[in-house]
Amino acid sequence: MPAIQEIPEAVFQETITRAVQEVFKTMLNQNVTHVPMNAEETKACLGLDTPHVVSTVGFIGSINGLIYLYMQDAFAAQCAGNMLGMDAAEIKEAGDETVNDAIGEITNMTVGTFKNQLSDKGFPCKLTIPSILRGSNFQIESITAATRRTYKFAIGPNSLIADLLMQPPSE
């Protein structure tokens, strides 16, 4: 089994891309395309200035990490409606809690699919319970020991950011 640091960058990109694609295709019947970003674009996409829903699920085991999924409020509501078979008015009536729960589940499935691929590569780990942040003017900082990888995906006219923060297990 290689050390986590030895896994090539391309493997992470491929693994998270496959996870996002599988979840959105299966649960929402939507196609997903990876959108490459340069360092400046990456930094810019993590600084939020419009209402966003940010959902996170962690994994603990041979690798410890967190994955944050960022999506704009309106897109989050649209995804929730699509997944639950509700129209825009019904989602509005159901409230933010329903959207939070649906986005939490999308994140749970995405991180689950990502970490299951890692588990099968020899890095077994377990999922944590999802948590949700909402806001329009905040930035998530990573701890210094963590390796951060940020990926952008296009889903129709909308964007999804996947922010991976990972570190090897403490000895």
């Binding site: 749970n108 499935m109 991180v111 689950g112 699919t113 970490k115 299951n116 588990s119 099968d120 077994p124 780990c125 377990k126 999922l127």
Partner: peptide, 9 residues
């Protein structure tokens, strides 16, 4: 019915 799908698990 779970997102936990690693072979060992």
């Amino acid at each position: 019915l779970t997102a936990e799908g690693g072979k060992e698990h």
